[in-house]
């Protein structure tokens, strides 16, 4: 007999559910609450009360989905967990049900955005567990591979010993029994050598994963800002912040208040004009001129004059 349980926490056997709820809906025989047939599921725990708690917990945690990293301190997180547990306890034990439901709804209203945002988000623990499962899977695969390799090696070795023995028997002139005995001894010796622990020690694994996880985060390179280099093929362009001091800005019209408010500054046209003027001038610095005298001197001379 398979027992099924519904949201009210009272269990019924599979056949009774089939009969009583043949129309799809009906009342719980124990507490008369209205139930749906598809609301029933197979009972896992002997005590239906546990099932009830699981159901309520599932429902509550769907909305109370804040993670440890959402809180400033561990205390705040613990207080939050305490609150959630109190709600679940109240609902399962039918104490202050109305008051609790009211509080839960209040929380839901107040934290609507956080709830939708956190949905589907994994906590650090869950990420760790996923990693653990992944690592376990790869370890399992590795072990299988190693085992298969060992098996093959062993078979090959056996074949070889057999072959050697045959050869020895064929070519030796001595006593057959002696050769056989020696062959068997060889085989034994080899087997002893071969027997090595295939299984790597499992105890350390969790630690290793932890280390590899933290390494994983360390290995990813932090971002380092490198200013882009633009080859203007011309004399170097003054820094935007030096334009005023160097007097370049004196030749550019002061921006109007409305332009300033829109984010336009006179540094823009000034810098752009300088860039466009200096671009592609094929300017060769003085010291490099000494090195390469045969360089395109014509342009340089005209630049200097």
């Amino acid at each position: 007999m398979k027992l099924m349980v519904s949201k009210c926490g009272h269990s019924l056997c599979e056949n009774c559910v089939e009969n009583k709820f043949s129309k799809g809906v009906g009342n719980c025989p124990t507490c008369k609450i209205e139930l749906k047939k598809n609301g029933f599921r197979y009972q896992i725990f002997e005590d239906p009360f546990v099932e009830l708690e699981i159901d309520i917990r599932k429902r509550i945690l769907k909305d109370f989905n804040r993670k440890e990293q959402d809180f400033d301190s561990l205390d705040a997180y613990n207080d939050y967990l305490e609150m959630v547990e109190t709600y679940i306890f109240n609902l399962t034990n039918k104490t202050d049900v109305e008051e609790t439901e009211r509080k839960i709804n209040e929380y839901k209203e107040a934290n609507k955005e956080v709830i939708t945002k956190n949905r589907g988000k994994l906590s650090n623990d869950e990420i760790f567990i996923e990693h653990l499962i992944e690592q376990e899977r790869t370890a399992e695969e590795m072990r299988k591979k190693i085992y298969e390799q060992e098996l093959q090696k062993e078979q090959e070795a056996k074949q070889r010993v057999k072959h050697d023995l045959m050869e020895a028997l064929l070519h030796s002139t001595g006593n057959v029994n002696q050769v056989l005995k020696k062959g068997i001894e060889d085989l034994e010796k080899k087997r002893k050598e071969d027997v090595q622990p295939i299984m790597p020690n499992m105890i350390k694994r969790e630690e290793e994963i932890l280390i590899s996880l933290s390494n994983d985060q360390n290995q990813q390179r932090l971002f380092e800002y490198i200013p882009p280099i633009y080859d203007h093929q011309g004399p170097s362009i003054p820094d935007k912040n030096d334009l005023e001091q160097l007097g370049y800005l004196d030749h550019v019209r002061q921006e109007k208040p409305v332009e300033r408010a829109g984010g336009y500054t006179r540094e823009y046209p000034c810098l752009r004009a300088i860039e466009e003027a200096f671009d592609m001038l094929l300017f060769v610095k003085e010291n490099s001129l000494i090195d390469t005298k045969q360089g395109p001197t014509d342009e340089n001379e005209s630049m200097e004059t």
């Binding site: 409305v258 332009e259 408010a261 829109g262 984010g263 500054t265």
Partner: peptide, 14 residues
């Protein structure tokens, strides 16, 4: 906001 206010001169801020 400067575009919404109808700025006709603006820069990288947008």
């Amino acid at each position: 906001p400067e575009l919404l206010f109808g700025a006709k001169k603006y820069g990288t801020g947008v």
